[in-house]
Design a protein around this nucleic acid. Structure first.
Length: 364
DNA sequence: GTGATTTGACCACA
DNA sequence: TGTGGTCAAATCAC
């Protein structure tokens, strides 16, 4: 799948992912103040646009329809408490304030939710669901009515330390015990093992990197051009906060940082670089991204990076049967279908000199 | 000793 | 009232 991807494209995706993370974090901050509708809409616009851009770049308009269902919803996902202060576990322990707990419960319900299905291949020796790159901590297991196998509940390990309220539920399929249905809820707001933090590198990966370093010389040349292009891109990206309440003047116009860890990942541009991108995409968006299958396989597969930095096939999706289920009702349900969004909507200077050669030919 | 997992109990919701 | 989701004490693993 990685074939044909230019360095610039990888870089742009990395940057977009990071920008999306920032937007997420910003939204989490903004929702702490009253009158959040405007800001939520703004943030949703940013996220939606990022998602579309990534979809365009990733699939060149040929994304499998069966995997477009889940998408970022337009509803607030922030796990922040109503008063805006970061929640601690103490809030959940519910020793006193039931109203507050009710709010938290509602917020959780409103979190974006999407379902993925993962087939475990016997050859990789996995007995449980794949490692999706994030660090999860199991907090419960429940027998579900009508289900053969119990459902496991996981939350982000960094929930306490980084206020990351992402959770997932893992349910083994009755029909096919090798398939795990994983329901994610909420986006990761932690940076751990996410797009911004490269996972530890295994010996195998280091070997890959050595090989890939041989290609780095050429990539460095490209990198210079990309840096230049990205700086233009950053300069053109603005979120207009003029319409925000006056008490929000502390919020600066959104822009990309001058440096990004994601860029460092690309710097070691190996097979795992895109793997990281894929993994990041997978984590950052409701729409899972899968790669074309290998010729010998009738499945789609997706490489992801586990905690030890090993890339492995974690998704073997039968294109016809493994539909992605989602409860999402957002307008972004069909990202490819809904590409008519203006740059001004998201604060991008319409006069920004996009290098159209950068984009897949179908949108030129 | 510390962190992760297990598991029974509790709570909210339909 | 039944079910799903979460909590938290007990237990396990490293």
């Amino acid at each position: 799948m990685d074939g044909g991807w230019s360095y610039e494209q990888k870089t742009l995706i990395s940057e977009l992912i990071q920008g999306m993370d920032f937007a997420n974090q910003l939204r989490a901050q903004l929702t702490s103040a009253p009158s959040t509708e405007m800001r939520d809409a703004l943030m949703q616009g940013i996220l939606s646009s990022y998602e579309k851009a990534l979809l365009i770049l990733k699939w060149g308009g040929q994304m499998p329809q069966s995997h477009l269902v889940a998408a970022v919803s337009g509803i607030p996902e922030s796990p922040l408490s109503v008063n805006g202060s970061p929640r601690s576990d103490d809030f959940d322990k519910g020793t006193g304030d039931h109203l507050q707990n009710r709010d938290i419960s509602k917020k959780r319900k409103l979190m974006p939710k999407w379902t993925d299905q993962v087939r475990i291949s016997p050859e990789n020796g996995l007995e449980g669901p794949h490692d999706d790159g994030f660090s999860w901590r199991k907090y419960g297991q429940k027998d579900i009515l009508g289900a053969t196998y119990p459902r496991s509940y996981y939350r982000c390990t960094y929930r306490n330390t980084q206020n990351c309220w992402a959770t997932k539920q893992v349910q083994r399929s009755d029909e096919d015990p090798t398939v795990f249905e994983i329901t994610y809820r909420g986006r990761h707001t932690c940076g751990n093992n996410g797009p911004s933090v490269p996972p530890p590198v295994s010996p195998e990966k280091q070997e890959e990197k050595q090989i890939d370093h041989q290609n780095n010389h050429h990539q460095q040349l490209q990198q210079q051009q990309s840096q230049e292009m990205l700086s233009k891109f950053r300069a053109g990206l603005r979120v207009d906060t003029n319409n925000l309440d006056s008490n929000e003047t502390a919020y600066r116009p959104f822009s990309f940082p001058s440096a990004s860890v994601g860029f460092l990942q690309i710097e070691h541009c190996n097979s795992s670089a895109l793997t990281n991108v894929n993994s990041s995409l997978f984590r950052s968006f409701s729409s899972p991204f899968i790669s074309p299958s290998t010729p010998e396989s009738s499945y789609f597969s997706m490489h992801q990076v586990n905690d030890s930095g090993q890339a492995h096939n974690v998704r073997h999706l039968e294109p016809d049967t493994n539909e992605i289920i989602s409860t999402n009702t957002s307008s972004t349900n069909s990202p490819i279908m809904d590409l008519e969004f203006s740059l001004e909507q998201v604060g991008i200077d319409p006069n920004f000199p996009f290098d159209t050669s950068f984009f897949p030919s179908f949108i030129r």
